[in-house]
Amino acid sequence: MENITRRLLQRVVRRFPSQTLRATLDKWERLSEAQRRSLDLSKTKWALTEKLLSICEVCDTFGVWISGVSRVIYVIDNPNQGMWYAFQLLDPKDDAHSVDLTQFKQQFKCHLSQLMRHVSIKIKKHTDEAVWIRIAWGDALSRPDHLKPTYVVYYLQSSHVFMTSLNSKLKPLLSQALVLSTRHRGMKDANLSGRNLTAITDLLMKRYQQVFPTKYPTPLAEKNEIESHPHIEREQAGAAAKRQQMACEAFGGGVLPQLQSAVYKLETRFKDHTNKIMTEREEPFRCVVKFSSVNLLESLRHCASSGIASTPVTPLLSSVPLKGRNSFVITDNGRSPSSQTQQSQK
């Protein structure tokens, strides 16, 4: 046990960047003020680990616990590590809105440990109503593996759940525990994923500047401008402004949530009036299109406003912010040739 603790603590301390080490240690409530001050951060990390271990031995607390809580704090502060997947809870029961933190904590721990024998759960409430859950999984024969934990973020009384590094075998267990403890009847994949947790929560909860269609997008200008070619300039400026307006209506204005990619699986008929053979083909043309960028929504908005993408923006692209998802399967609605533009999104 001693060895495991030492190894864990070493790995955890090594993983923290030195700049954030002080801040993280300050959040660690188990350590007293004096103990925290006694830690000399200018020393090597190895020396620091030894010091921490000696403190923990005195306090009679154990490293597994230490690493658990300190790493929850670390991930809360650095939520942009790994890939986050969004899930949606379905069919709330009548008392779903009255679930509070203590009840949720108790229920979740109870349900999950009934389903899995060796599992270690840490729950911590973050400042903005988010409940952070760290789960270390073990199996029938082994202890919980604290080096590969799953993180779950749940907003109380909402239907959104976000998870990172979850093994697909363990997903049913976790979703069952979540559904039961949040008083819902089901959970489904929300088809949204990204590296930036804040961005995907903002997108799902529509916390970005939305632009709505208006008849007069700008205040009416006074008509006293004298220009060389007033007609041409007005027309061009008008078209550009219109494109800009439509782009913002589709994707939002200002700074947009940082989404990295969107994937479309297309299984639609190939239609091209110059290619008769392919147009007459019965089978769908199967392809996968993946858009990626540092900030996908801003890239797409720029494409639309600069004319690379024609306006009005196709529903396929505007569905990303509108429906809050970035993974789509597109098929033809009917097999009849009449369904020219109708496409369904699954």
């Binding site: 190939f270 089978e283 043309f285 199967r286 392809c287 996968v288 299109v289 993946k290 858009f291 990626s292 960028s293 540092v294 900030n295 996908l296 801003e298 890239s299 797409l300 720029h302 494409c303 600069s306 690379i308």
Partner: peptide
């Protein structure tokens, strides 16, 4: 060439 640059990866089924 948008700002920020957009990458489009287009993968087609071999038979199609």
């Amino acid at each position: 060439p948008s700002a920020p640059p957009l990458q489009v990866s287009f993968t087609v089924d071999p038979q199609d």
